[in-house]
Design a protein around this nucleic acid. Sequence first.
DNA 1: ATGGCGCCGAACCGGCGA
Length: 260
Amino acid sequence: MKIVTWNVNSLKVRLPHVLDWLNIHQPDALCLQELKLEDQNFPRAEIEAAGYRAVFSGQKTYNGVAILSREPAQDVSMGIPGYADEQKRVLAATLDGVRIVCVYVPNGQSVDSDKYQYKLQWLEALTAWLKDELTRHPKLALLGDYNIAPEDRDVHDPKTWEGQVLCSAPEREAFRKLLQIGLHDSFRLFPQADGAFTWWDYRMNAFRRKLGLRIDHILLSDALAPDCTSCSVDIEPRKLERPSDHAPVTAEISHAKESY
DNA sequence: ATGGCGCCGAACCGGCGA
């Protein structure tokens, strides 16, 4: 089972990249963030023509998440239960016995912003919900744009970023709390080259200069992590014309449906 | 690296992202 997360920064603009990527890589599930479109404008026909189903939760201009899959998604749920939020940031579905949770964590803007407080509260609500969700779905994968670089090695220049949003201690603590409920950072299950990032600023030639952060992650539950065989970032789409500023992250899981 | 890019909607700019 091949599962992927990709913040596309406008599905309308990035649709050709997404369709090409699906055609080349044929994942079982592709979680998308920052659709930036309303449900009525979701490009369902194009995605179905590529051989994929889609469930989605969109809104105008901002946010929006989707799960594309070869097989129909089961038990689809939107948002964090019990946490009122106008912003469309969470979508969950079961595929092949695995609970797939697609998240677009708030950016936070800056550590002295109200948006930063919202981010921390949101992460707390997410963690509480997932702890509960894990009791119902031991095989769970949490994929998305976390807007957190968990450690200094996930940052091109830790000194510059120290204490800044995406790298601050409370955000990193929130990330650790997610791990503590029984999740594992699939990327760190394997040896990785230095300077492996998933996001590069559009400005200042950041991508060419390899000035990035690793903020998109695939966390796997205790029951799923032992079956993970790889996790990697594909930087090829970042080289295209009009790219997303994020790259897709892929995890492969060798699990037997029959054993579930 | 931090003005510097790119997306959006309603306009030719401001809000937001990271």
